[in-house]
Simulated scan of single mutants.
Amino acid sequence: MADKPTSRRRSASTDTADASRGERPITRAAVLETALRIVDQDGVDALSMRRLAEAVRRDPMVIYRHVPNKAAVLDGVAELVFDQLRVDATDIDWMSQLRTVARDFRKLALDHPRVVTLLVTRPLATPLGLRPQAVLRPLEDILALLMRAGFAGPDALHIYRALFGFLYGHVLNELQEIVENPEETDDLLRLGLYRLPIGEFPLLRALAPALATYDGAAELERGLDILLTGLAANLPRHNGADEH
């Protein structure tokens, strides 16, 4: 414990030295943006506090002043991506707005495929009240959207959980490597399904054409059709809100 004041003094003196050399002081946002670039380029396993310090060209103690450990950096990377997700809580068409949110989330996942595991796991590893505001904002805004549409609070929360449970599963599935031999034109060979015993997996083998022509955008829309129409039909609304 005795080394913490020394660490803080070293960090402060390093920042002061940076300023005296005319260098822009490092901020938490700059550290996290650099971490996001590292993960985007080389994956989560490539991120370390040492590499992060080297990337921002500062003493490692400066990094620890803004983020105490790697776990905090990973949380911050997820926070940066979630901060780009917008929900219009005033939209009178709740289904249309949730479709827009779903499409935007998928786009963020495709833009940052190596961050997706963090988006799915990091928030859930932190108690709700301790999560960054950027992570909580979509939840708050979706609750406002749905409650304005006439859903009771617990039902609105159920819809949020169902939607994001579906989205997390969808993006993880879409980003999986499903093609073994991309140059093959035969679907069984393309997917490696020829390895499966014919008698034990007849349905999988028969569905090879559908599996080989997987379309992430179309799958998302189909899943949303099933999810949102089912929720609308089975969850009651009050205040005379119109169905959409």
Rank of each mutant, 00 (worst) to 15 (best):
M1G: 12
D3A: 09
T6Y: 14
R10I: 08
R10D: 09
R10A: 05
T16S: 12
T16K: 06
T16M: 10
A17L: 01
A19D: 09
A19W: 05
P25K: 06
P25L: 12
T27P: 05
T27N: 08
R28F: 04
A29N: 14
V31S: 06
E33Q: 13
D40E: 10
Q41S: 13
G43L: 02
G43V: 12
S48D: 13
S48K: 09
A55T: 09
V56P: 04
R57Q: 15
R58S: 01
D59M: 06
M61G: 06
V62H: 01
I63D: 03
R65C: 03
P68R: 15
A71F: 15
L74I: 04
L74M: 10
D75N: 07
G76H: 05
E79Q: 14
V81W: 07
D83S: 15
R86A: 09
R86D: 13
R86Q: 13
V87L: 01
I92T: 14
D93I: 00
L98C: 02
R99N: 13
T100M: 11
A102V: 08
L108Q: 00
L110N: 02
R114C: 06
R114N: 11
L119H: 08
L119S: 10
T121P: 02
R122Q: 15
V135I: 12
L136P: 02
R137A: 12
R137P: 02
P138F: 10
A144R: 09
A144V: 03
F151V: 10
A156K: 09
Y160L: 08
R161M: 10
L163P: 01
L163F: 08
G165A: 04
L167I: 11
G169W: 00
G169D: 08
G169M: 05
H170G: 08
V171R: 02
L172V: 09
N173I: 13
L175Q: 14
L175C: 02
Q176L: 14
I178W: 12
I178T: 05
V179F: 00
D187G: 02
D187Y: 08
L191T: 00
R195G: 07
L196H: 10
G199F: 12
E200L: 02
L204K: 06
L204G: 06
R205I: 06
A206P: 09
L207M: 12
L207G: 08
A212Q: 10
T213H: 15
Y214G: 01
D215R: 01
G216C: 07
G216R: 05
G216D: 06
E219A: 11
R222D: 07
R222Y: 07
I226T: 08
I226L: 14
L227H: 07
L228D: 00
L231T: 07
L231K: 07
A233Y: 01
H238K: 11
E243M: 11
H244S: 13
